[in-house]
Write a protein that binds this DNA or RNA. Structure first.
Lengths: 215, 215
DNA sequence: AACCTTGTTGAACGATCGTACAACAAGGAG
DNA sequence: CTCCTTGTTGTACGATCGTTCAACAAGGTT
């Protein structure tokens, strides 16, 4: 607009930064941390890389988090929360039968956004910290039970309805299914060419299928 | 000995270092690298930490390896080789039946020295490098096939002998057993309290047991 | 319009990183 | 014993790391 262009008043020099509520900024920093982990793995975990990703100065991180480890732990907690929430909505949207819910869960497990090399990169970094970081251990302990209970519930529902006669060690069944899923997921992320996601779902369902059989 | 103590000749001043053949020194540096990975994880992967572990100066590493990445890749190759060799001797020492060999393999998988948090720490670091390091990718490609073929051979022998009638997708069976093993191994290393190694072996054998059944 | 709170910036610090390189010395050859 | 090869040392360098902190300024309050 010519009028604006001819205006003598200097451009309002839009603010060099925008203040945000601490909660919003914390979330943005957490999101930037996870994004850096996905892109660069362990090497992306530097204050400077994260702050650049968030479009923010280096000093701001230590204003919202006491130190780097606390930021990472917060990112881990957020990451776990999003994951479990995604699985739960997948289960809720599935057909309301035991098999339907299990199938919905497995499909969510073996499709985007979960079945992704980027997601593996994030997990790998957190696994590497597990032994030496008390913060990470704490988050793991807070989160892991929910995951196991979800799987155990799905299996229990299938067994209760379809194989009331067979004696099944529910604990071992859940451990086994969990391991089979994690192993397939890990192998696919490391080498996506060896099998298809649908085959992974079928393998897991076959496992549950064979649970009640006598050996 | 007083004679020695009274001797006027200065102590022979034992050598400040001992020269070694390049091959020996390379092996020692590789061993030190793996030891550092086991103890300190990703943070142990510094030239100074490794050289201290090997009882050697910082400069020596770059005399035997062009750079740090090549040392790590060499360590990865060595680590993989030792692992597969251990499994193979376990299989050879087992009773000479298909089931016996599979059992021997599984027991080796779920016992020391393989079933160890330290070993997981090593794997985690290598997995984290897989995406961004061509050297690691190359070692992985060179090594992985041998592992898969070993497992496939064990399953095929069991099936050939005991279930010649059933139609089994050998490829999917090997993928599934591999995933189940890796998942159980991973879970045990992360949280050793949830089940016993013998239960893991039993779960894997149960998987093979159910392979030939009609669904 | 002046003021105040506080989210935000960016330079600075000491530590540690991987690598390079000149000097050293162990140990066999002559 | 002297010489020579080369495995070995340790300092030095530039880069990057996490953290600190004084100064700045955005944006609501008075």
């Amino acid at each position: 607009m010519p009028v604006r262009a001819a205006d003598k008043t200097p451009a309002p020099a839009r603010p060099r930064f925008v203040r945000q509520l601490p909660e919003q900024r914390r979330l943005a920093l957490i999101a930037a941390t996870i994004e850096c982990l996905k892109r660069y793995g362990h090497e992306g975990l530097s204050i400077r890389t994260i702050s650049r990703q968030a479009g923010v100065s280096v000093g701001l991180i230590n204003h919202h988090f006491p130190n780097k480890d606390e930021l990472i732990a917060a990112a881990y907690r957020h990451f776990n929360g999003e994951l479990i929430a995604g699985f739960q909505t997948a289960v809720e949207r599935a057909p309301d039968t035991p098999r339907g819910r299990l199938h919905g869960f497995l499909v969510a497990m073996f499709s985007l956004p979960n079945l992704d090399q980027d997601v593996l990169a994030v997990w790998v970094v957190f696994w590497g910290m597990y032994r030496h970081s008390r913060l990470i251990q704490r988050v793991q302990r807070d989160t892991y039970q929910g995951h196991v209970q979800l799987i155990r519930g799905l299996i229990a529902a299938v067994l209760r309805e379809e194989r009331p006669l067979a004696r099944v060690d529910l604990r071992l069944a859940a451990i086994g299914l969990n391991a089979l899923m994690d192993g397939l997921w890990l192998e696919y992320c490391l080498e996506p060419g060896t099998f298809k996601p649908a085959e992974a779902v079928a393998l897991c369902e076959g496992w549950v299928e064979n649970l009640g059989r006598d050996d």
